[in-house]
């Protein structure tokens, strides 16, 4: 669906809250390292789906929530989200011209940009975590994107009717 109908703000907030909870669920460290960035996926889905309402600014605000919950420097995740959302806004038409399965490949660099922003800011802040598994969520998020986007699309359709 290239041009999507308006969904209610409530739906956006609820889906964001649910994915935030999934992101925070306690897990063993090994699984946690590879956990797809559900929250980021939801933010980017709404950016792609409702670009008139959910742009970089909304993504930035959404990222602040992660900063508060993770205790990371203020606006670190906000900035990463905003940059990723900007990429999605710019490439949105290209994105929707492909079926969901193939969007996986297109989203891979977007998630990589997101993770790289975090990696970069962490590095500047002196938190130098350069382990290969740091990049696992990029792949797991991209892999899961078709399923996640499909679910969110169905939910949006249910509401719009």
């Amino acid at each position: 669906m290239i041009i999507s109908q308006r969904v209610s703000s409530l739906l956006i907030v609820v889906t964001l809250a649910v994915s935030l909870v999934i992101t925070l669920l306690p897990m063993p460290a090994t699984m946690s390292a590879a956990r797809p960035a559900f929250y980021t996926m939801t933010v980017l889905f709404w950016t792609a789906n409702q670009p008139q309402r959910f742009g970089p600014i909304a993504a930035w605000l959404a990222g602040i929530a992660i900063d508060v919950l993770y205790g990371t420097p203020f606006a670190e995740h906000g900035l990463a989200m905003a940059v990723a959302a900007y990429v999605v806004v710019k490439g949105r038409e290209l994105l929707w011209s492909f079926p969901l399965i193939q969007q996986s490949l297109l989203m891979l660099p977007v998630f990589a940009v997101y993770e790289f922003m975090l990696f970069w800011i962490d590095g500047v802040a002196g938190l130098d975590v350069n382990q290969w598994w740091r990049w696992l969520p990029v792949f797991s998020s991209a892999l899961l994107w078709p399923i996640w986007a499909f679910l969110l699309e169905r939910i949006a359709e249910l509401e719009v009717g």
Partner: peptide, 8 residues
């Protein structure tokens, strides 16, 4: 809660 961020 423990850190959900595996690097902190």
């Amino acid at each position: 809660a423990v850190s959900p961020d595996p690097y902190r």
